[in-house]
């Protein structure tokens, strides 16, 4: 048997084995995605979907319509605030948790297991639990407060004389609570893999704990923090479940993904829904491109 045919056989075997994976991603992800882009440029509703041809009547009408609809721009701003704050808080809390649990102590395994539960628990159960605990009538959190707060249905409230968006802050807190275990897992794995010698050398040199964190530990964590930021940003920016379940998009928490859902189901306006989803995806890509450029530049300067 010549080497060339061996190579050809390997090629054929490889393609054969990977083909189920490729077929299912192609049929259930790639093709629908292309279709979603086409739908965004057509006037399609659930009732006329069979009459609209695949390649007929392309226009920007959907885009013009959705960006001029009331609430679109504010939902985009909400999405951004929710994403940036949720990402930053979940990573910060994850970092604090990873540092606190880095060294052994009695009961570490129990605390570690407990920290993972919010992330492992189904989102529907976690959201219902928060709704119950924050309920203004019988929620346990409100029994601890002097005056009950409608955390999930109040748009604005006074706090220390400041006007704060109550419901938006609550869903951000939920996001941080639910996803800090994700950052915690990655950061703890990285922390425990760091060579101890550097830290010990810094102790010998007389570095204080904060100095060791700032100059020894943190520089070795930047890459994983940057990766986590990208991942959490991407996932949170298009997240639907959490806000839909907590507030239904009410009380000043409407994000674009909830609008996409409402246009699709309540209004059955497929074209407008798709157009909104495409706008969301494009904004996401733009932010990612800016971030990656900025970050790649920053890393270069650090050497």
């Amino acid at each position: 048997m010549s080497p060339r045919t061996l190579r050809q056989r390997e090629n054929r075997a490889g393609l054969l084995l990977i083909s189920p994976t490729l077929v299912i991603t192609l049929v259930v992800v790639v093709l629908p995605l292309l279709w979603a882009v086409m739908l965004a440029f057509q006037d399609v509703r659930l009732i006329n979907i069979r009459r609209v041809g695949l390649f007929a009547n392309y226009s920007f009408a959907n885009f013009a319509y959705v960006v001029s609809e009331p609430g679109f721009w504010s939902s985009l701003v909400n999405t951004l605030i929710y994403t940036v704050a949720g990402t930053a808080l979940s990573i910060a809390l994850g970092l604090v948790a990873a540092l606190a649990l880095r060294d052994r102590f009695r009961g570490r395994l129990v605390v570690r297991a407990s920290i993972l539960i919010p992330y492992v628990a189904p989102v529907v159960a976690a959201a219902f639990l928060w709704e119950t605990m924050l309920n203004p009538q019988y929620g346990i959190v409100n029994t601890w407060l002097a005056e009950p707060i409608a955390f999930l249905s109040q748009t604005h409230g006074e706090f220390l004389g400041l006007r704060v968006p109550v419901a938006l802050l609550t869903v951000i807190a939920f996001e941080a609570w639910r996803y800090f275990p994700f950052a915690f897992l990655f950061l703890l794995a990285r922390l425990q893999a760091l060579p101890r010698e550097l830290d010990e050398a810094a102790v010998v040199d007389g570095a204080t704990p904060t100095q060791r964190f700032r100059y020894v530990v943190l520089p070795q964590l930047w890459r994983i923090i940057a990766l986590l930021s990208v991942l959490r940003f991407v996932f949170t920016f298009t997240k639907f479940d959490d806000i839909y379940l907590l507030t239904g998009g009410g009380a000043g928490t409407e994000v674009v993904s909830v609008r996409v859902y409402n246009f699709l189901t309540a209004r059955a306006d497929i074209g407008a829904s798709a157009a909104q989803a495409i706008v969301l995806a494009v904004v996401l890509v733009v932010f990612l491109a800016v971030y990656l450029r900025f970050f790649a530049g920053g890393e270069h300067e650090q050497g």
Binding site: E10, N11, G14, L15, L33, V260, L264, I278
Partner: peptide
Amino acid sequence: RFFGRRQVHFLFLAVYLFPAIVLAIP
């Protein structure tokens, strides 16, 4: 080693990061 092996990784990463809400419509 098969044709397109390198591109497969890109496809997987894209699917992993891809927003479900966009896919939900079609």
